[in-house]
Write a protein that binds this DNA or RNA. Structure first.
Lengths: 217, 217
DNA sequence: CGCTGATTTCAATCTTTTCTGAAACAATGC
DNA sequence: GCATTGTTTCAGAAAAGATTGAAATCAGCG
């Protein structure tokens, strides 16, 4: 019984003169979004739930979502929880209704800022930390002291290692360190960029992106 | 038998006085890279193969890779093929050796440009195409000829029809279109940005990114 | 409190993706 | 041609990941 509650948008198409086209457009959007999500390592269903909430603009309850997407209660609950964790969906309530409703962030830039923020936090930052640790493992073999650390200094390997003892091994380690430093430098740049993008004052970067993008198109 | 061919770096650690630390650092790098790859929708093994080739800097043959990563021949072959398709690994040969050797692109920025180029081509571009199609499905209901649309479909419908039957529906569709337009605009911006980054003259953006990144850190 | 209904959790199940290994397929040299 | 060495393909096996559904938990209310 609860599944056909009077939630407006969610169940409108069932009994009223339906706008079939709108419904189809929504469904295609949901499918597209889901496909893209799964290509980027996000569960398809989670992306679909988000797409549904975004494209309808209507806060919906768990039952609405279950019915519209034909998924189980558990799945819907899990997906919603994840979306809340990501900060792209928020809870709302209705007066005189004990159900929880969920609505998607409607501003596209804000939405992507949240996504970037979370992905950085979950994946890029740990990776960066690991890279630092790995770099430290071979720091003792640095030719020019620890200065190259953490700054991605691109030291061209010196040709003059006339160490007759183990030139190959040392040279190899030196190159290893150079590669790691370059990688670290790259990740630091990306990290800084993302912080700009993500920050509350990230509007500047948004504007820059828009201008850069427009100019190139 | 072929798996212990004398390929230098790949099998050095086995019999010679081994640089255990270097080997461990490489292994950790490979693991880190593999984990990150899988978080971004790339097969873990493929990422690991790439990591191995990148961090050693040494061109390696299929057998070297199989042994070092403990994977099957088929898997190694498939992963290498994919990496070649992505353009981050290239074939090399050695005089007097019929085997093929594979080496990773060593410049980090070039590498990421290749990755971005391929991902855009495979995922973002199709998504953008779908979004255009979806947008066209409801183009006839545009109130004011959507400026953000690219193909400029003419809306023949007069907006002031005063259909008293379904004002809500019209409003809903209008909002739907607005959301799609915002999404399209966002994707177009990202697309243009990526083209700048990816292009041969993409150095400009690389520089800009570096400066922006540095400034914010 | 304990009832009612909403929400979360989680082991079992199902689906999708990845991996293997051996056979088919080149390419090279004799 | 044909033996030899190296590469690719692909059907089935294995692993990883997603989904279900029912039981446990929680929250408001009389």
């Amino acid at each position: 019984m609860a599944s056909e509650s009077a939630t407006g948008a969610a169940s409108r198409g069932a009994g009223d003169p339906p706008d079939v086209t709108l419904r189809q457009a929504q469904d295609r959007f949901i499918a597209t979004w889901g496909k893209m999500g799964s290509a980027w390592g996000i569960s398809r269903t989670m992306a679909e739930v988000h797409a549904l909430l975004f494209i309808t603009g209507q806060p919906m309850c768990t039952d609405d979502i279950m019915e519209r997407l034909q998924i189980s209660r558990g799945n819907a609950s899990m997906s919603l929880r994840s979306l809340l964790d990501w900060g792209v969906v928020s809870r709302t309530h209705r007066r005189g209704d004990r159900k929880e409703y969920f609505g998607a962030e409607q501003d596209v830039w804000t939405m992507f800022r949240a996504i970037v923020r979370e992905r950085m936090k979950r994946e890029a930052d740990p990776t960066l930390a690991s890279l630092y640790e790995i770099r430290d493992m071979t720091a003792h073999l640095d030719a020019a002291g620890g200065a190259a650390r953490a700054q991605g200094k691109k030291s061209r390997r010196s040709k003059s290692d006339a160490h007759e003892s183990a030139p190959t091994l040392e040279a190899t380690t030196e190159e290893h360190n150079r590669r790691l430093d370059e990688m670290l430098s790259f990740f630091q740049t990306v990290h800084s960029l993302s912080e700009r993008f993500v920050s509350p004052t990230g509007r500047g970067l948004q504007l820059a992106a828009t201008i850069l993008g427009k100019a190139a198109s």
